[in-house]
């Protein structure tokens, strides 16, 4: 590997390290920073390329942040690029969380910490509740979708069915039911979209 290539990989790694270090709130919160760093500051790829990459990141399994880092790195410098970007985006989490986890047990028995977390747990209900609405709005198109979502919820929450089976079941249901889905006027437009 040439010296130039090593330098390029180091810059790619540090760009994604920064993205991992400065985004709070998960993969979706990362997208604006990825866009700014990758298309504006570094000019690695065009905005259109990034749109394609983000769509693919959400379609393949795995965390969106990791998927998009891997894809951008791969597009730029092949496999070494994919590795450098992925390591970069993961490493801040790994370091920070390991540090917190190492010390968490020493103060988690403190009365005030316990009370604070009793409050925080209630807020987590709201954070995930908001995510249900967000994901639902973009994923559920019709009554069949709503029924599938309700059944999936019940299977996982009340019958302890493994989420993996629910995903696979959803795929089978999609294949079986796509033909009989309720059609709306704007379906034509939907069809032509990738």
């Amino acid at each position: 590997m040439s010296r130039d290539r090593v330098k390029q990989l180091a810059v790619l790694f540090s760009t994604f390290f920064k993205i991992g270090l400065f985004t709070f709130g998960g993969g979706y919160a990362m997208l604006p920073l990825i866009e700014r760093e990758v298309t504006e500051r570094r000019r690695y790829i065009s905005r259109e390329q990034l749109t394609d990459i983000l769509a693919l990141s959400q379609a393949v399994p795995g965390a969106i942040a990791i998927n998009s880092a891997t894809l951008i790195g791969y597009t730029l410098y092949g496999r070494p690029g994919a590795l450098a970007a992925t390591l970069g985006v993961i490493l801040p989490s790994f370091l920070i969380i390991s540090l917190i986890a190492a010390f968490f047990s020493t103060f988690s028995e403190n009365r005030f910490v316990k009370l604070a977390f009793a409050g925080i747990r209630a807020a987590v209900v709201a954070l995930i509740g908001a995510a249900v609405l967000r994901v639902g709005r973009s994923s559920i198109r019709d009554a069949i979708g709503l029924a599938l979502a309700v059944i999936s919820t019940a299977l996982v929450a009340f019958f302890s069915v493994s989420p993996i089976w629910v995903i696979l079941g959803g795929a089978v249901a999609g294949l079986a039911l796509y033909g009989v889905r309720p059609r709306k006027d704007n379906d034509q437009r939907e069809e032509s979209r990738p």
Partner: peptide, 9 residues
């Protein structure tokens, strides 16, 4: 078409 609602679930 089926996986997305399952993910919502």
């Amino acid at each position: 078409y089926g996986v997305r609602p399952a993910v919502t679930g």
